[in-house]
Amino acid sequence: MLATRRLQKELQKMHAQLAPGLTLVKAEDLTEWVLDMRVLDDNPLYTGKTFRLKFMFSQKYPIEPPEVIFVQDAEHTIPMHPHIYSNGIICLNILDKEAWSPAQNVESVCISLQSMLTGNDKNERPPGDEEFVRGNTRRPRDINFYFHDNAV
């Protein structure tokens, strides 16, 4: 019930206005949304590319964080970043149960991800990416990341 009202309002606001570089692709229901994101500066790693994000909400959103992943398909790749695994799973502290704040919203999460890409100059995956991706069957919410480097 909490999630319903809150997401309806967020959607309303996003339809009216959305931060630059963001496009709402799909929000047919209140459990799963898809957004496209471009990086605004001319970081050579990401220029000209559009990345696709999938948000999944529980009934307890925004008390509980949304699950957010990058999606790979024919037109979209997973951005190269030392905190983004090649299966699209993102290691960002604000999306973790411990550091999530209900004052965040879908748009502000997208903006955080934008700036996470903007500030990156490493063309690499997180350490242990291959193993993680090969072995992982868990959803983002069931993973406890160890935030080894909060500066990125």
Binding site: I63, K97, E98, A99, S101, P102, A103
Partner: peptide, 17 residues
């Protein structure tokens, strides 16, 4: 009621942490 629900999970200020 909502801020208490948040504090029960995570005793921090949503804005300042």
């Amino acid at each position: 009621a909502t801020i208490i629900e948040h504090i029960k999970r995570n005793p921090s200020d949503p804005l300042t942490r």
